[in-house]
Design a protein around this nucleic acid. Structure first.
Lengths: 345, 345
DNA sequence: CTGAAAGCGCTAACAC
DNA sequence: GTGTTAGCGCTTTCAG
């Protein structure tokens, strides 16, 4: 048996499709109590469920929002996605998701196919800059797009990210103030992302006139650490890892070189992944409010969907937390190694 | 300017909608090269993109698959979701996602609204048993639903999970064989999930006649561990943690009680989260192929969508790996603490 | 080789 | 209060 339609309901109830449609949309103002009751009964009897596709076609509104991220497994990304899903759901939107695997051609494909599917807006954590022109053009054409976390230098697209520049300066400053005489900035390929670049610039600005090194050989992290240590021989040194992967590499490297933290070297980095609390008595980290970035992106997007295109373009930076732990000497005894000092910038 | 439609393309190209539609669907058999070229040009000139909503309405096919999980942040779940997304994308489906937050009323709501949106199938990691009747009824009515990871005793729904029973027996057996004289099974609320129950039954079956305890006070994990140790005084003891949260609690508890592993107590548990490799010289764990569970669920679902409803119901168990590390004494020296022994069951 | 026309299930003027 | 009708953008029979 085919599912009930508004047509079958109207026939069964002995009214017109219009009336049923009015009932469905809660327009009871001019409806007799009797008709209302009849329709209610019939709907229940037939177990009628309105077809949202037909509705979408007519209304030119799908209630769908698209999310595209490079890597949903990434603990950073998944929090962002959760924030998006939660806000969208709360506002009555459903979420279509795709994973670009850091490939901009896939990203492009998904942007386009989601738009064909008539998502009402798009939240994208961009893989790189390759689709900048596309996203810009689409926005100019009236599509609603918000960039979450990873940004582009631009004043056309709405963007939500965190205080990467200020927080990195805060951290680097804190390291020097703690008595570290040399700081190494450990990062993968700087040019691939605005976030990395921003953090690097903050590092440069804050370490001006101090002993500072860029370590960017992500693949040979052990060697990079050794190089850094031989250059800073005798000085108290710390490494700032600009991404979670870098941080993991640094921590692994330290471990494999049989070095101890904070005695032999200080460590701090992005982000506050669960393991950073557990390893080596605790690694000091920056915690980004990624869930909130997702939530806020969705909020801005939905606002734009509802209140149109002419609102000013938004650029939002959410504040991160600096969590100081053992790896920067912020715990005195082993027993306290699970304690942490949280600084809100 | 409104987006181009098949109508505007047909007019501009001087052909009928039918012909354009044929072009779009690759039905070139009886089409003159000239017409084909004209249409191609016009489509490009107008930057025409077919409206998938209209297409879906006509075809009664949306190319959409729904996924509902209790908690997408959970590293276990997110791998499953990624597997689903990857397979669906590969097969040309798009994925709608929702998070039930372990609440069956939300779960029900999303199941229903996704079906109204005409997803062609549903993959659900169920929150609990409350929606069993609903899912069963829907399946009987012809909806395509696959249960991923968490199962229900049933022979109507397709299900994909891992070898929980066999693997738990393997682990418990291994613990006794390693010389542990008492094994504690640490789990949250057993009745909430079939997975937990299955693992518990395996534990009971394997530990028959041995010293075995159930520790289920998840909230007071320190106390639970102390109780266990006082009961097993003098015996070599190990704890098997049946979920990642339990495992974290056990590891935290051990740490807070200033106990050392494997000297004071052995530890093993689900799942292979990144931190288990890093803490305490490595925690022995079971690694479930969750990505593959998601992938396989999607495969079974899409197969059922394409090849109909009459295929036999599938129940698939994928094999887990046992990864032995320091916490069960499987590393001899500190320097090897990053090494691991992998056993495929 | 191509087109006219009907219809997917719904909504919303516009009647009455 | 309620119904008639047109139409959202597409596919597809059937006719030519």
């Amino acid at each position: 048996m085919n599912p009930a339609t508004i047509e079958s309901v109207s026939q069964q109830a002995g009214v017109s499709k219009t009336t049923v449609s009015r009932y469905l949309n809660g327009k009871f103002e001019h409806m007799s109590a009797k008709t209302k009751a009849r329709i209610k009964e019939t709907i229940e009897a037939l177990d009628y469920q309105p077809n949202l596709i037909a509705r979408s076609l007519k209304l030119k509104k799908t209630g769908l929002i698209g999310v595209i991220v490079p890597d949903i497994i990434n603990p950073v990304t998944v929090n962002l996605v959760k924030g998006v899903i939660d806000h969208c759901t709360q506002e009555g939107y459903q979420v279509v998701i795709a994973s670009s695997d850091e490939q901009s051609d896939k990203e492009k494909e998904y942007v386009l196919s989601m738009l064909n599917r008539k998502v009402e807006g798009l939240i994208v954590n961009i893989a790189d800059y390759n689709n900048y022109d596309l996203l810009k053009t689409l926005t100019e054409r009236g599509e609603k797009i918000v960039l979450a976390d990873r940004t582009i230098c631009d004043s056309i697209l709405d963007m939500v990210t965190t205080d990467n520049y200020n927080m990195t300066r805060t951290v680097v400053k804190a390291l020097y103030e703690k008595g570290y005489e040399a700081v190494g900035f450990f990062s993968p390929e700087l040019l691939k992302s605005n976030v990395r670049l921003t953090r690097y610039n903050a590092f440069l600005d804050e370490s001006a006139g101090k002993l500072a090194y860029l370590l960017h050989n992500e693949n040979e992290y052990k060697k990079a650490i050794q190089d850094f240590l031989s250059k800073t021989q005798g000085k108290k040194a710390a490494i700032f890892a600009s991404t979670p992967m870098s941080l993991l590499n640094v921590v692994s490297g330290i471990h494999e070189l049989n070095l101890k933290t904070p005695e032999d070297i200080g460590i701090c980095g992005y982000d506050n992944l669960p393991w950073t609390k557990l390893v080596g008595g605790g690694i000091s980290v920056v915690e980004q409010p990624l869930y909130e970035v997702g939530w806020e992106s969705a909020k801005i997007l939905i606002d734009r969907i509802k209140n149109g295109i002419d609102n000013p373009v938004k650029y939002v930076e959410l504040k991160s937390k600096l969590i100081l732990r053992n790896s920067t000497g912020d715990n005195v005894t082993v027993n306290q190694s699970w304690k942490e000092i949280i600084k809100n910038d």
